[in-house]
């Protein structure tokens, strides 16, 4: 029996179906998703990324931060993200509209970073964490990113950008351009704006079954 042509046509139809359902349908759907214009604030959300933030996102991508960090705050019924203070609300698709490379991540070896800009106030905190995580957060299993910093001899006055870390006397530690961009990106990660689709708060696990039963009863 010569089934070659049937296998070929079947395989083609199957992949075409898979592509239509998984890729094309979403391309169409996401095409209609736009930033939300807030007439009260006179601005659109999410806010566009300034240049340094976009460069920082590229640093985040090329260093592979997503190997250990996710960028998705999950609903109240899907774990302890909100209780842990990783976000004020769960992430929604609209939050990521300006990300050139969306880095949802798939393993939480470190904490979620989607809302990290709201958790750390000053760039100095981020620099400390990147330069010496073990000192900034005792017990942390994050590797140090010393190569994002330059150790230089102090000539004249100490630079105002120098990190407050222990180095040999007469020397200072200065963040490089890449470190500055990365920290600008991390500080930008602050999903606090309340979109129409975030107004609904999902009930926690125990309550959710009742809510579902209630809805079905209606």
């Amino acid at each position: 029996m010569n089934r070659g042509p049937y296998i070929f046509l079947g395989a083609f139809a199957l992949l075409a179906f898979s592509w239509t359902a998984a890729i094309l349908a979403n391309q169409l759907g996401y095409g209609t998703l736009t930033p939300h214009y807030d007439a009260m604030e006179g601005k659109s959300f999410p806010a566009p990324q300034p240049g340094i933030v976009a460069r920082g996102a590229m640093v985040y991508t090329d260093l592979g931060c997503a190997a250990c960090h996710t960028q998705q705050v999950r609903r109240a019924d899907l774990g302890g993200d909100l209780t842990r203070g990783w976000g004020e609300r769960a992430s929604v698709a609209r939050d990521y509209l300006h990300e050139k490379t969306v880095q949802l991540g798939h393993n939480r070896i470190g904490p979620d970073l989607r809302n990290v800009g709201a958790r750390y106030e000053s760039p100095e905190d981020f620099y400390q964490l990147l330069y010496a995580p073990e000192q900034a957060l005792p017990g942390s299993n994050m590797p140090a990113y010393r190569f994002l910093f330059e150790e230089s001899k102090i000539s004249g006055e100490r630079s105002k950008d120098a990190l407050d870390v222990a180095v040999a006397p007469g020397y200072q530690v200065i963040p490089t351009e890449r470190a500055r961009s990365l920290v600008a990106y991390l500080s930008y990660l602050e999903d606090v704006y309340a979109y129409p689709e975030t107004q609904y708060v999902y009930p926690e696990k125990e309550a959710s079954d009742d809510a579902a039963a209630e809805e079905e009863g209606q």
């Binding site: 890729i23 998703l33 490379t101 949802l104």
Partner: peptide, 11 residues
């Protein structure tokens, strides 16, 4: 090319 937002994650 580029797909917008979390559509990238789906792809």
């Amino acid at each position: 090319g580029s797909i917008r937002g979390t559509g990238q994650a789906i792809t």
